[in-house]
């Protein structure tokens, strides 16, 4: 048993990325998982099949190294250094539900911040598919006491949350660099279905569109997204947004989400 653990640790240490910047800005390609996760090969087969996968330092996943609140772990994914981002898949190696969220950036920046429930210490990965079909992967490792996926939401235990279900709070800010920031919070229990007696209940889709119908971002949260989810996204400068933004979505029970926010 100890010998096996030793071999695994050795593999993890040897697989660490080199210290210091790279001489050029080309992606660091290769099949060895920089996060040294024993789940990686399974995940690769399950989510990417035969598609080309590269580990790419330009995909940033910002998450706390130690998360004291496993029910609410902040994660910020930034793939804006890549061009032609079509979709981003967020995977949590050691959660019972691995797939945590998916988004299509549309005309917004290819970055999104949100919060997850973690069941134990785990790598968190963002897999970014560019127009050429290649998946670019970045990630971070989070240590936590965990247990968050099998806990009921606070909402499901409260008696009066239904009247506020799917209520949206949203607000826009002008950023110093000329971009527009949208923050979005939705009242929803986001129950994983893994807590005893509490059925799965989560938001499936959120579409954020400009007044003229252009898609700014499509977000597909999954069960591991934290209760009362909060999303932060940025709309690049130069994209004229003078009519209200529309936010529309629904949860897995068919309840609709709808809101507008003024620039």
């Amino acid at each position: 048993m100890q010998k096996m653990a030793l071999i695994v640790s050795a593999a993890m240490l040897l697989a660490l990325p080199p210290i210091g910047g790279l001489a050029d800005d080309s992606p660091r390609a290769g099949m060895a998982d920089p996060l040294g996760s024993p789940r990686w090969e399974n995940l690769r087969r399950a989510f990417f099949g035969d598609a080309e996968v590269v580990f790419d330092d330009r995909v940033k996943v910002n998450a706390p190294a130690v998360a004291d609140e496993p029910l609410n772990v902040p994660v910020a994914v930034d793939a804006s250094a890549l061009t032609g981002v079509e979709e981003v898949l967020v995977l949590v190696d050691f959660n019972p539900i691995v797939r945590a969220l998916r988004f299509e950036p549309g005309e917004a920046r290819a970055s999104l911040a949100f919060r997850l429930k973690l069941n134990e210490s785990t790598p968190i990965r963002a897999a970014v598919r560019t127009a050429d079909g290649v998946w670019h992967l970045g990630g971070a490792r989070v240590t936590t006491s965990g247990g968050a996926c099998t806990q009921p939401s606070a909402g499901s235990g409260a008696s009066d949350w239904q009247q506020d279900l799917n209520q949206v709070g949203s607000r826009l800010w002008q950023r110093p660099d000329g971009s527009l920031r949208l923050r979005l919070r939705i009242v929803h229990p986001m129950d994983t279905g893994l807590a005893k007696g509490i059925p799965v209940f989560y938001i499936e889709t959120l579409e954020i569109t400009a007044g003229d119908g252009r898609s700014l971002m499509r977000i597909e949260p999954a069960e591991p997204v934290a209760e009362n989810p909060v999303f932060t996204l940025d709309i690049p400068p130069g994209l004229s947004v003078d009519s209200p933004l529309r936010i529309a979505g629904r949860d897995n029970n068919g309840n609709l989400i709808h809101a507008e926010t003024m620039p």
Binding site: E69, D164, S170
Partner: peptide, 17 residues
């Protein structure tokens, strides 16, 4: 921040719950 920021966000977004 992890424990108290959600409440500050709720207030900044003018939400009842």
């Amino acid at each position: 921040v992890t424990r108290l920021y959600p409440e500050a966000e709720r207030i900044a977004l003018d939400m009842r719950r």
